[in-house]
Design a protein around this nucleic acid. Structure first.
Lengths: 134, 134
DNA sequence: CTTGATCCTGTAGCGGCTACGGGTTGTAGC
DNA sequence: GCTACAACCCGTAGCCGCTACAGGATCAAG
């Protein structure tokens, strides 16, 4: 166990990720299986920490596991794949845009229903009516 | 079987919901168990269709199953619960707002990385660098 | 050497469906 | 009335991305 080795707990903490998630990532092949101590405990090197941070950051930005797999492959040194990465990011931006628009639309409906609620004089609940419509 | 009865397939179609989803809703108690034909097929009345549309609409607006359960209870005739419904809607709007802001933030990061990409002169991929940072 | 924190594996659960497989019923046409 | 085939039945398993156990082994500090 070298001086820079990390236990799974420290690794997880250092990347801001749940410990069980690290094992999950290993199981699905997103993190490489690390060396083990004699007793069978996982022993990570600093490059594992970097990889895990990369994954966490990608997740935060909304990339799915498969996309991250591709991003990792494309980020290997020696691979000239900036264009592909940019295309993936652009696709992802498009889907984020779509999601934002969806949410804005439904927010508008909800706001309208709530606003109707605050006006007096109605017999029934405008929010319930909105849900019942269509 | 009355003239207005519906099979599960017609019910599902009429509400724009997958047939299996209807059975799922019954299993989790979101839809009431309907009458059955002699042969055991489900037989729905028009009020089931209305309920199912209510659920679908609520899902479209992003309410979770538990929230819908409460909304259904509050929408029972005789319940004066417009304020509670409005509060639920407002809470939901707040969470939608938060989600929109999250997505807008990450969109900004992605756009910046892609924009950096389009400028020449960089040695490494700015998107990959962004993912590796932090 | 003891204690207690950390680690191990395996499995099951979450939400909200969706998709089988293998069997039974309903219904339209002849 | 009979046949064909669509539509239904139930139960179970899978999807994503984790998270949370249980029941045990190991590690490190005192």
């Amino acid at each position: 166990m070298s001086a820079r080795s990390l236990t799974i707990g420290r690794l997880a903490d250092s990347a801001g990720v749940n410990l069980e998630t690290v094992r999950y990532y290993e199981r699905i092949g997103l993190m490489p299986a690390p060396a083990r101590t004699e007793g069978g405990h996982r022993s990570y090197e600093p490059e594992h920490a970097q990889r895990l941070r990369f994954i966490r950051r990608s997740r935060e930005l909304g990339f799915g596991i498969d996309a991250i797999r591709r991003l990792i492959a494309l980020s290997e040194p020696g691979v000239q794949a900036c264009c592909e990465v940019r295309d993936m990011a652009q696709d992802h931006i498009a889907s984020v845009d779509a999601k934002i628009e969806d949410l804005q639309r439904l927010r508008k409906v909800l706001r309208q229903a709530v606003a109707d609620c605050s006006e007096g004089g109605r017999v029934r609940c405008p929010v319930i009516d909105e849900l019942g419509s269509s």
